[in-house]
Structure formats: C-alpha cells, structure tokens
C-alpha cells in the first residue's frame, strides 16, 4: 500500500463501494455475551462486507463497544461465532486479532502518552518489523534499514493525516482532537483489513468532525479499508455509512441502509423513548 500515491487511484475502490453482493469480510452470528447476570449482547448477528463503512449505533449501554470488544478478541462471547476472512473462531486473543488484520481506536483515547506522535505511529508497525533481538542491539545494518523503511511508511500516514507539525511532540501534550487523529494514524500503520472506530468524533467540534469524516471517507475510498464505526452523531453516521446496524439493550433492532434505519419505528422509539 502506498499512501502517497493512492489518493489519485480512486476509481476501482470507489466504484465498487459498498455493493450489496460483495462477500462479507466479517460475519457475526448470534453472539451472546454476559457478565454474570448482565446480558451485554444477546444473539446479535450482522455482517460487514469488504470495502464498506458499517455503522453500529444505539443508545448508551446498548452493547456497541462490547460488540467491538468481541470482534477484536478482548471479550470472549459465551455463544455464537465470529467469522473473519472466512475463518470461524470461538476464542481469540487481541494480539491474534491484530495479526489477522483487525485494528481499532478507542472511545477514550488510548495512546502511549509518554511517546511522541511518530513513535506512537511507529509502534503500530510492531507486527511488520521482523529483525530480532541481536540486530536490535546493534541498530545498524538490517535493523536500521528496516527502521527507516517503516519510518517512510509512517511519514506517509503523517502526511495523509496532516500532522507533520506534531511529529516529535509527546502525545500527552496534544489537544484532544489531534490525539484522536494520532490514534487513527496508529491504527492505519497496521495496514488492517478491518478498522474498528469507537466514537472517533466524540467530544470534537464541528470543524474537527469535518476533518475526521474526511479522513474516514478517504481511508475507505482510497485504500479500500473496511470500517466499522460507532458514533453518536447521527448526521455523521447517516452521511458516512453504507449500512447501519442498530442495537438496543444488547439486541439488534434494525439493520439496513441509513434511510431504512432512519424511518424504522423501533429505532425512532429507541432514540426518542416510548412508554412501555
């Protein structure tokens, strides 16, 4: 993947964008997850197709983040099956999910605060770097060459996200909006097949939201990265996503295109509240 070159090569990815007949990259089949007596997710099924932006929405506590945690191996659902790239699995560790190509950002930024922006993004390349301990001790020859090769890649991401000016700044000192951007950069550095974004726009102002939306669309269109998105800003969700799944109290209440979901009575009830 060459980030610098690809923005012009939009055609192929853009044309096939979110077509209904594409094979699912990830399929979630009747997943149930409970903590003691609390059912966080119950019998939810949906799929994410290659190349689409899939939004997961729902009121607070609906089980959206738990769902993402199941997908990238943090939680192990008691029932159900998750199929990623055609391989079904019951239990998976987070680092295994990472090596299979699932990257993720967090609702409350989970950056490495003591490290610079560049180092944070370089850390995202951890799985791609192969030179062993002895070469690392020397930091010359192949180890340095590898380091520089990955630095180049990270610089492309830095370019793409327009964060050149904070390259060497410790991320703990950055404003929130930029931290979110660096976190996206770290996830992109992994070159994932599936990118899970947990409220990438929470707490941002309109301008920052606009920037972030642009980055998400670019990532999807130009690099063909499949994205699962949790977001509370309905305007953003409806504009960005190809398909939306709606959760409420751990159950799926609607699934379909933004327009279908918008006019679904159960979704309106869930969001506006209804006498039960």
């Amino acid at each position: 993947m060459n980030i610098a070159a690809s923005p012009h090569a939009t055609g192929a990815q853009g044309a096939a964008h979110g077509g209904p007949l594409r094979d699912p990259l990830l399929a979630v089949e009747s997943i149930s997850l409970s903590f003691g007596g609390l059912k966080a997710v119950s019998e939810v099924s949906f799929d994410i197709r290659r190349g689409e932006i899939r939004a997961i929405i729902g009121p607070n506590g609906a089980g959206k983040t738990s769902m993402l945690n199941c997908i990238n191996g943090f939680y192990h659902p008691q029932e159900g099956r998750i199929t990623f790239k055609g391989v079904a699995r019951r239990r998976m560790k987070p680092h295994e999910a990472a090596s299979q190509g699932i990257a993720r950002t967090f609702q409350n930024v989970a950056l490495f605060k003591g490290m610079s922006t560049l180092d944070n993004i370089m850390t995202g390349r951890a799985l791609k770097m192969r030179r062993g301990f002895l070469w690392q001790l020397l930091r010359h020859g192949p180890a340095l060459a590898e380091e520089i090769e990955h630095r180049k890649f990270c610089e492309e991401i830095i370019d793409f996200l327009e964060i050149e000016h904070i390259r060497k700044t410790p991320v703990g000192k950055l404003p929130y909006g930029l931290q979110k951007r660096v976190e996206l950069g770290r996830a992109l550095a992994m070159e994932p097949d599936l990118l899970l974004l947990d409220e990438p726009m929470a707490g941002m102002n309109v301008e920052e939201k606009r920037d972030m939306s642009r980055f998400i669309l670019d990532v999807n269109r130009h690099f063909g990265m499949t994205i699962a998105l949790i977001e509370h800003d309905m305007g953003v969700v409806m504009d960005l996503s190809d398909r939306v799944v709606v959760l409420e109290y751990g159950r799926k209440i609607a699934d379909g295109s933004p327009d279908e979901v918008k006019s679904n009575q159960r979704v309106i009830d869930a969001y506006l509240g209804v006498a039960r």
Binding site: L111, G114, G124, Q136, R139
Partner: peptide, 23 residues
C-alpha cells in the same frame, strides 16, 4: 530506540492498546 524499546514503552503507557496493535 528501536522496535523493542517502543513495545516496552507501549506496555508501560497503555497495555490494552499495546495488545491491540499486536504486541
């Protein structure tokens, strides 16, 4: 200053995120 040092610092700063990027 290399990959190993970065993975140590990643674990120090946020072990959950470190796991998620494959460390």
């Amino acid at each position: 200053h290399g990959r190993i040092g970065r993975s140590w610092m990643a674990i120090r700063d946020m072990d959950i995120a470190a796991q998620l990027i494959g460390i």
